[in-house]
């Protein structure tokens, strides 16, 4: 029994990290109607930036975020300005193509600089006991960090003027423009915020497993599944989607077989989408917020 409880807890701890990585993706869609398939690459870029700072400057991983998050924030602004702002028609479909190109460019650049070899961030090696099993401290630390970022994001969205403008844009882009909200500026800042959160997620991802430039490919498919389940544009949906995904996958892996983990999850996802095509907390929920 303790083995199963432990698997659930591991799913929750990892789910927090995935929620952090996915929240930028869902915010960007909510505000901009852009499916940012470069989010996985931005996560891995963030992981590599943390790796460089930790291995060359011996900077603490958490302190390193003070550099990596602003840097990816600026990169996000540049990407939005250079590629996404210009998309006027068929925005969703074209955004997939454009951000896929950005993703390939990032992956290719990382490959040229770092090669196609796996690296791991120098995380502390201590453990604590959970249901009788040793658990790496770092899993708990990065989970708490992810929770802190998600809480901060919640405050930003629901307790600030910027958040109100952002939510207004999510609800109705045209109406937001009519009441004087600078929608383009909000879009730029949202995309940049998503990129900065990806950098934080990248640190958490890289601290708990090894990665290489191609890791983004597996990652983005999982992140997209999470926000489809949670509902495009919903922050709470990203959190619940991530936790459900990881817990179900881990539970099925230990109880039945790892090969059935994704199968069971996707079967559940299809059933949910048949009942709620907008996902668990889709647009309707986001608009009500």
């Amino acid at each position: 029994m303790s083995f199963i409880l432990y698997a659930i807890m591991i799913g929750i701890l990892d789910g927090g990290i995935y929620a952090l990585m996915a929240c930028g993706l869902t915010l960007v869609f909510g505000v901009m109607e852009v499916i940012n398939v470069a989010q996985g690459s931005l996560v891995i870029l963030g992981a590599y930036m943390s790796y460089v700072l930790a291995s060359t400057l011996h900077l603490n991983l958490y302190l390193g975020l003070l550099i990596t998050m602003p840097a990816t924030f600026l990169l996000g602004m540049a990407i939005e300005w250079a590629f996404l702002r210009r998309l006027r028609v068929d925005r969703i479909a074209l955004s997939i193509l454009v951000t896929y190109g950005v993703s390939l460019a990032i992956e290719g650049g990382l490959g040229m600089i770092f090669g196609d070899t796996y690296v791991a961030l120098p995380a502390p090696s201590g453990t604590f006991t959970l249901f009788g099993y040793a658990t790496p401290d770092i899993k708990l630390y990065v989970f708490l960090m992810a929770c802190a970022f998600l809480a901060g994001l919640y405050v930003l969205l629901y307790r600030t003027t910027f958040g109100a403008a952002l939510r207004a844009t999510v609800q109705n882009r045209t109406a937001a423009q009519l009441i004087g909200i600078n929608v383009e500026r909000i879009s730029t800042l949202t995309f940049a915020l998503g990129a900065a959160l990806a950098a934080a997620g990248g640190m958490a991802f890289g601290a708990t497993r090894s990665f290489h430039p191609g890791s983004a490919e597996d990652l983005i498919s999982r992140l997209l599944v999470i926000i489809v389940l949670g509902g495009f544009g919903s922050l709470g949906g990203a959190l619940v989607g991530a936790l459900l995904f990881l817990v179900v996958e881990d539970m099925v892996s230990v109880l039945i077989s790892p090969i059935w983990g994704p199968v069971v999850f996707f079967a559940g996802l299809i059933l949910i989408l048949l009942v709620r095509p907008q996902g668990l907390f889709g647009q309707l929920e986001a608009r009500r917020q």
């Binding site: 083995f3 698997a7 990892d14 890791s215 990652l219 990881l246 892996s253 230990v254 790892p258 090969i259």
Partner: peptide, 20 residues
Amino acid sequence: YQVFPDETTDFTPIALKIVH
């Protein structure tokens, strides 16, 4: 005996089952 998909990124449950 465990077989898992290529896309698997979280190996902890697989390793735990071996430990078990």
